[in-house]
């Protein structure tokens, strides 16, 4: 199965190459050239792009495990973003972006085939080679080098840049497919963050279990105390919720981002992120509050990712409005419709 192969490759490439030192260097502004080279060599960024556009031809659902793994390993590169952008470009009939790519959820203007506008909150905007944006009903791929950059960082010191374009020529351009919602890029971003959160929570759970089994207090491993066991059970529940919800969003989005499923997934994952991080920190005690211990690489990302591309509140309200519009008899069918009965492909 493609999915298993992706998971294996991701574990090998990301698990081997991403060390705390690499993350620290990245948080201080270094671009991890070696890691990105390995990502490209293994075609990870092209996982869900169709073969016709230069991709690997995996389904979007298959790409879920890759993006979850990127979250699990705190990958300090725009891997999730690149996979998303290349998938969307492929669906729109465009070639995959060369190198790394990212996206802007806010739009700009297109006049005489040239793009102008200020795009904020772009993940890795200064590092990624290309930025995907929406303008005037078009999907527009821009060269990041054509924008002037104002740098910023999220709580995990991942770049979240602003790029200003003034009459830039797009590298590629295609009309937004008719079936796609106008907020496609916001939805796409929310979807990848949900999967990354699920991966990050899985990492927290493993770290916290290991610690609980080995830290001795009162003469026994703290994992033997029922209070700790129940906290870890709750962390496992939140991890499972986030993972199931995120995967469902991917499965529902095979041919275009599926708004209701993505809204629900991001609402669930964002809430789980906060609860999971709090539990992991409680279980690890003071050592988990140090810079030395690598717990914070994950928790600081969870605290950032939960707010990016729409917070829990933003997306829960979106789901709530959808359900209320359905009225009494439409609530259950609407919830069911978020979970597709059959995979659209494969």
């Amino acid at each position: 199965m493609m999915k298993d192969m992706f998971e294996e490759t991701a574990e090998r490439v990301l698990g081997d190459l991403i060390t705390p030192e690499l993350i620290i260097a990245s948080e201080n502004g270094a671009w991890p050239e070696g890691l990105w080279h390995a990502v490209e060599e293994n075609g990870l960024g092209l996982a869900a792009a169709p073969e016709s556009s230069g991709g690997v031809g995996g389904s979007w659902h298959d790409a879920f495990v890759l993006i979850r793994a990127a979250g699990r390993h705190s990958a300090p590169v725009p891997l999730a973003e690149t996979i998303l952008v290349n998938w969307l470009l492929g669906l729109a009939g465009l070639d995959a972006a060369p190198g790394s790519a990212t996206l802007a959820a806010t739009g700009g203007d297109l006049a005489d085939g040239r793009f102008s506008g200020t795009l904020g909150d772009i993940p890795w905007g200064g590092q990624a080679g290309h930025v995907l944006a929406v303008a005037g009903g078009n999907l527009v791929l821009l060269s990041s080098a054509d924008g002037s950059r104002t740098g910023a960082f999220n709580a995990a010191r991942e770049p979240r840049d602003t790029l200003t374009f003034d009459s830039a020529s797009p590298v590629a351009l295609a009309p937004l497919p008719a079936s796609w919602p106008p907020e496609t890029l916001l939805l796409g971003g929310a979807m990848i963050r949900s999967a990354q959160i699920a991966g990050g929570l899985g990492r927290l759970l493993d770290t916290a279990i290991d610690y609980a089994n080995q830290r001795i207090q009162f003469g026994r491993a703290i994992g033997k105390f029922q209070a700790i066991q129940h906290q870890l059970a709750l962390l496992a529940e939140q991890t499972a919720l986030a993972s199931a919800a995120a995967e469902m969003a991917f499965a529902a989005s095979e041919t275009a981002p599926s708004p209701a499923a993505i809204a629900a997934a991001k609402a669930v994952a964002s809430e789980a992120a906060g609860q999971g991080a709090a539990i992991a920190h409680a279980v690890l005690g003071a050592i988990g509050f140090t810079y030395e211990h690598d717990l914070h690489f994950t928790t600081r990302r969870l605290w950032s990712w939960r707010s990016e591309f729409g917070s829990q509140s933003y997306w829960a309200q979106d789901v709530g409005r959808r359900l209320c519009r359905q009225g009494e008899s439409g609530v259950w069918p609407a919830i069911m419709a978020m979970t597709p009965a059959r995979a659209a492909k494969g």
Binding site: M248, A267, A316, G320
Partner: peptide
Amino acid sequence: GAEPDSLQAFQIGRIGARLMALRAM
């Protein structure tokens, strides 16, 4: 009704989102 205020929308949506996730599980 069809036009919830933001608190109502948030809470109804939170329930709906979790129901989706639970159904998937």
